[in-house]
Design a protein around this nucleic acid. Structure first.
Lengths: 195, 195
DNA sequence: ATCAACTTGATACGAGCGTATCATCGAGGT
DNA sequence: ACCTCGATGATACGCTCGTATCAAGTTGAT
């Protein structure tokens, strides 16, 4: 097995643990068991727990961004509000995959908030990448200015993040969340450009 | 020193630790040091770490809700969008207190998400209490129906939570956050009732 | 004053953590 | 064929964690 394959095998295990049980479940030994390798191998490729976590989080952030990018690319043109709706659809934790991703996100957020870590950089990179791309999609509509596209992107990301949290906590149902999104989009205007 | 004073002294120490350094910093020994008491006392009043954490989180949640309640009460009547603006003002982590509270919130969220804990109940209670009160304030306007008030409350809470995360991560500036809020309120309509 | 019940402190214990050590394996260049 | 060096496994070390234990101190009713 090649070095990069080994590395991916281990980083994937970290990702699965994060998604399934959260940050506290990620120990070197748990990663080894999840990946089906020895503890020594996790040390060998991960170097240290901090490096391992950072690498895994960067990988996950990259992946999510890329997944979102390809989804948008395949969708092609279309209404801006349609694109935003697709973003919500992708971002809200409605299935187990989405919930796992949300757990990863909250873990990363907590890490970034409470430690002057390298995780901070990973989190910021991820947010910036997402915001950039979303602003680009919104700004593709000629009726929307660049600065306004950025604002809407921030607003949409915020709403999606917060709504995701309420959804995960069981504080709102999926139907209620969808209604909130629909209402937001309605008020944004059919072209996403009103005001 | 009375029993309840002791209890508060210790729970406050937990709260300070959570706000300053996050969930991972809360150990029985760290709580003891922060409260200036012996480890044994923390055990004695906290019973166990899980109970201690749960009690501290419930206390913090209650407090924040109460603070928000009194703030709204003192404000008295006024425009609905004015009340929502005040909510954002209170909820967004713009000063160190607000940031500490946000750290507590994320800690609680992660706990609620990754463990079938008692923390889950505390988190849900807090969210529900906040949503109830916010919906009540919004619904006080005769132009807003009850169901719609609930929807707006959910939307506002989501936006505030998500925007707070972006703010904490340094992904948006305070000015940008305020602009996003202003834009949202503008689109909501002067009476908070449009559509 | 006495005794019982509750408080407080010092210390110990077992478990799990991240990390380090050391020996063995296996493939590739010479 | 040999030798070298990265890859892998088994095991150990030191630390911190939550919790338990035991003794001493304190308080209040009688």
């Amino acid at each position: 097995m090649s070095e990069t394959q080994r590395r991916e095998q281990i980083l994937d295990a970290v990702g699965r643990l994060l998604g399934r049980e959260g940050l506290h479940a990620v120990t070197m030994r748990a990663v080894a068991a999840e990946a089906g390798v020895s503890l020594r191998l996790v040390q060998y490729y991960g170097e240290s727990k901090e490096r391992l976590l950072t690498a895994a989080l960067e990988r996950l952030a990259d992946r999510s961004l890329q997944r979102w990018r390809t989804r948008m690319a395949v969708r092609g043109e279309g209404d801006v509000s349609e694109a935003i709706r697709a973003f919500f659809d992708e971002a809200l934790p409605t299935d187990e995959d989405g919930r796992a991703f949300h757990r990863v996100g909250v873990s990363l957020e907590l890490l970034a908030i409470t430690r002057p870590d390298a995780a901070t950089a990973a989190y910021q990179d991820h947010l910036r990448g997402l915001a950039d791309h979303l602003a680009e999609v919104v700004g593709a509509d000629p009726r929307v200015g660049g600065a306004r596209a950025r604002l809407i992107a921030t607003q949409v990301m915020s709403l999606a993040h917060g709504l995701g949290s309420l959804l995960m906590a069981g504080n709102v149902t999926r139907a209620q969340a969808e209604e909130v999104v629909r209402d937001y989009l309605d008020r944004l205007g059919p072209g996403g450009t009103e005001r």
